[in-house]
Design a protein around this nucleic acid. Structure first.
Lengths: 236, 236
DNA sequence: TCAAAAGTGTTACTACTACACCCATGG
DNA sequence: CCATGGGTGTAGTAGTAACACTTTTGA
């Protein structure tokens, strides 16, 4: 380590995680209460500082694991925020990840321990610092990405019905889709396998369960494909 | 500043800039030689550490200005790279920006002073650290973005001809487009104003100059629009 | 038997692709 | 006058949007 490196200013580097879930027909975000003064108790994203010897992705996984108890969840870097006064206490550069989890696999106890709570994306509380912006940007990225990649499935249980999938997309895009066109488009990708089992308890007729076929997806992604309904376009 | 902040690990934070230009029908990247040991003289991106009291965008502008002598150039954050050993000397987190400049407005002296040189994107030299990846990712983002936003214009002089614009898009996408379809699509956006002036010296007939109408663009962007040719799709 | 949600096909329209010839000018 | 690159239109095709009725079954 020489002069060039030694003389440089070293900021704090935080990892903030926008955690999306889908429940009761709504797109939700997992928020938590700040544990430190000042602003103790304010709602915000799951957060943590980068540790020595950790890669960025690893740090994000650690923060996610601590907040949700879950491993191996879908996660992607959004952007890095570094306005000088974004954190009023100290200069903190914040690297934002967004992640998609299956709410049903959530552990209630861990939520309580972390003072964490799910909020509908359309009814967020007042948030600390620039966390509101981070969430809105993540939502935008989710919208755009869901048009080209079947990431929506990350938010649903392993087995899901087409009406559920459609509601999820409607929650993400805040837009209604035509049932027939949606099914046609989704099934045309060949990514879904229909099971012989019907959902019980939701409707009288019962909708067939489907599963997402990861294998087929990998084939398609390498060729490049389009998962988009034109009608989804550009609310983004 | 309290214990929570004080105890945290503080990494170095570098800003690396991928600078794109367009010249002689080729998409190019501005590279520079490393000034410090080790690896002194190795080709790499324009880089600098974040300074105390600077926002990230400001730091990127500073690095760009130093490298090119230019102000107010198109610039966007790509991503942040933080593998533990990406810089073999010290732990450096690297925030990558990519930018688009008009090569003609470049100052030759500054290039020489910085030992900087333009390289065709298809013939890059061996690069230090993970800079090759950063360039490839930036190129991907440029490809994708150029399908939805008319950012290509940032790479051309104020006045340009449609054949020039088409060659630029062909260089970005490494794909040939049909002349008629390209013109139709581009002109249909209503973003270009045809001038009464013809280009001289390139072809005998001479192609009409066009200018990009920023005002109209702002109208369109707020509604959301699609700048894409399907044929551009998914080489990305 | 009826209420409530699931499932299904066709037509019109729009947007993209493919394609070949004439035009203007400088040398 | 001819070689070179600039400019133009149309027909076929594919994909998207719009739209309404039948099916199943639990209460």
């Amino acid at each position: 380590m020489n002069e060039y490196y030694n003389s440089a200013y070293k900021p704090l580097l935080a990892i903030d995680c926008v955690i999306f879930g889908y429940e009761d027909g709504e797109l939700k975000v997992l928020l938590t209460r700040r544990k430190q003064e000042p602003y103790k108790g304010a709602w915000g994203l799951a957060t943590g500082f980068l540790h020595f010897g950790e890669s960025l992705d690893y740090a994000a996984e650690r923060v996610l694991k601590k907040q949700t108890g879950l491993d191996r969840i879908y996660m992607d870097q959004l952007s890095t925020y570094g306005e000088v006064d974004r954190d009023p206490v100290a200069r903190v550069i914040s690297l934002v990840y967004y992640s998609l989890i299956k709410v049903e696999s959530q552990n209630e106890e861990i939520l309580e321990k972390n003072q964490a709570q799910w909020f509908s994306i359309t009814a967020l509380p007042k948030l600390m610092f620039d966390h509101e912006t981070m969430i809105q940007m993540s939502w935008g990225k989710l919208r755009r990405k869901s048009r080209y990649q079947p990431i929506g499935f990350e938010l649903l249980p392993e087995k899901f019905t087409l009406p559920e999938l459609q509601s999820l997309y409607e929650a993400i895009h805040q837009k209604q889709f035509d049932k027939r066109n949606f099914r046609k488009k989704i099934l045309a990708t060949g990514l879904l396998k229909k099971l012989d089992e019907k959902q019980k308890g939701v409707s009288k007729k019962g909708a067939y369960y489907y599963v997402f076929e990861e294998g087929k997806y990998d084939e398609l992604i390498s060729q490049g494909f389009n998962f988009e309904l034109k009608s989804m376009a550009f609310g983004s």
